[in-house]
C-alpha cells in the first residue's frame, strides 16, 4: 500500500467518475427527477468552481497571497475576451512567476 500511496485514491476517483457516466446507460430515472432537483443538479458544475478556486488560490502562496489572485484575474480577463483556456493559463503562470520573484 505505502509503496504506491496514490494508487487507491486514483482508482476511487475513477470509480466515482465511471459510476456517474455509466448510470444513464443502465437506468432511466434521471429523466423523471423533480424539476427543482434536476435544476440544482445541472447547476452543480458552476457551483463547484467557487470552492475549487477559494480559498486555495490565496492559501497556496502563503506570504505572497496576492500572486495567485492576480494571476487568475488576468486569466479570467483573457478567457472572457477570447474563447480559449490555454492562453489564459500560460499568462497566469507568467504573471504569478513574476510576482513571486
Amino acid at each position: 500500500m505505502n509503496t504506491f500511496p496514490f494508487l487507491t485514491p486514483i482508482l476511487i476517483s475513477a470509480l466515482a467518475t465511471f459510476l456517474v457516466r455509466a448510470l444513464p446507460y443502465y437506468a432511466s430515472f434521471l429523466d423523471r427527477l423533480p424539476r427543482f432537483l434536476s435544476k440544482s443538479l445541472r447547476l452543480l458544475p458552476i457551483a463547484a468552481l467557487g470552492p475549487l478556486i477559494f480559498p486555495g488560490v490565496i492559501l497556496d502562496f502563503q506570504e505572497h497571497w496576492y500572486a495567485g489572485l492576480i494571476g487568475i484575474l488576468c486569466a479570467a480577463f483573457i478567457a472572457y475576451r477570447k474563447n480559449s483556456i490555454i492562453i489564459p493559463i500560460l499568462l497566469s503562470i507568467l504573471v504569478t512567476y513574476l510576482l513571486l520573484l
Binding site: 486569466a75 483556456i85 489564459p88
Partner: peptide, 9 residues
Amino acid sequence: YAMFSSLLA
C-alpha cells in the same frame, strides 16, 4: 486555479 477561473469567465 487559472483553469477554473477561465472556465468561470
